[in-house]
Design a protein around this nucleic acid. Sequence first.
DNA 1: TCACTGTGAATGAATCTAGATTCATTTCAT
DNA 2: ATGAAATGAATCTAGATTCATTCACAGTGA
Lengths: 222, 222
Amino acid sequence: MTIDTDPAEAARQARAEQRSAQLLEAAARLMDRDGPESVSMQSLATEAGVSVGLIYRYFGGKDELLLAVILNVLDAFGTEVPRAMDEAGEDPVHRLAAGLRALCEVIDDQRYAVVLTYRATKQLSAEGRHRIMELELSTMEPLREALRAGRDSGVLDVVDVDLEAYNLLLLAHSWALKHWYYERRYTPAEFTTAQTAIALRALVPPRHRRKYAALLATAATQ
Amino acid sequence: MTIDTDPAEAARQARAEQRSAQLLEAAARLMDRDGPESVSMQSLATEAGVSVGLIYRYFGGKDELLLAVILNVLDAFGTEVPRAMDEAGEDPVHRLAAGLRALCEVIDDQRYAVVLTYRATKQLSAEGRHRIMELELSTMEPLREALRAGRDSGVLDVVDVDLEAYNLLLLAHSWALKHWYYERRYTPAEFTTAQTAIALRALVPPRHRRKYAALLATAATQ
DNA sequence: TCACTGTGAATGAATCTAGATTCATTTCAT
DNA sequence: ATGAAATGAATCTAGATTCATTCACAGTGA
């Protein structure tokens, strides 16, 4: 099965990957400046400094492009969340908090792409939609895992792991979804801290609260 | 200023209102059957059994129509939530639970219109967007009020009223937003009960939990 | 009671528009 | 010189919008 080793082919692949990244970057920049509805093939081409036709070489069409943008975010979740959680050590509560923070950071970074996830369902093929669902679920797996671990060791009071994991994801998504409201009241960091406190307050039973006081506190605490 | 009393004018108004309601109903039915992206002027006209042109008489265009659909849902929130809360009596916790339940019920009933709220931002005029924001905020006011009352009387542990009220709204919205996932695992009623328990678990301090045991319990409680 | 007429309601084929897609042509790298 | 990469004007498409036309009926006079 060693079909590789063709240097020309390898070079092509490398270039393709670079182009693809360039286009995704441009899409992000464009959405960030003009909102997600401005992602037309023309404006994307202009933003990326290439011609429309070229986009079709690297992405089959708009559908595939949007799918790629979305998968890109989900991929960032899949990378950043576990990394942050592992850095946080073994404690399930700290792991959870770290995961939520990472989630919020990626979302802040890719705000419009996250919103796109909710908007683009229309143009996506059934298969694309399915991939997104699968990926979203597997993205959340580390959070679910931490919830389970915390429940098993008694530091977390979890009733329904799946539901509560999804709630955490939505808590973070809300930064993108309701940004028009939150941006007036919180910085990204404040938002993250406050939501972490709220989420953990729901999960950490009283007897363990002292231990996690730092995570449970907010600037606004009375 | 008694410009009314024109019976012809009154009749016209009545008919206009009826038409408008008929069209909004058709839009709901259509979205429910074919998804929100199928709301084209043609298909809406077909569904409502009128001609395309007529829609333009009652709604200026697609933007206004979508705005009306959305305002319609928000209006239902504005009516149902306070009603349910008032029926629940004085106790802030019961009021909150009743409000959340009412929210979930309206959302289940208008699932696609709720999703539309997140999708349609594009086509809405700045003014329409603004009205939606205002309305959403005032819709949540009863929830905020209950949170404040509960905090003041000590039965609720609330750090940031605005943030937590919005989280409750999103908890309910998630039924519509992530329906593809939840529908496989919960009935609307189960979802509502579970989310209520989770939300209240976060808010009711331990010393008051016994009193609200019924709301805090779920079928799934270990 | 019945034709007659004026007015708003309703129609839907024709038009317009935004933007996605194609592909004949040109440029570039080896 | 050759093939891949890139271009962008021309085409295609979905669907929103218009508007000339028809319809329905209330009011009017015989």
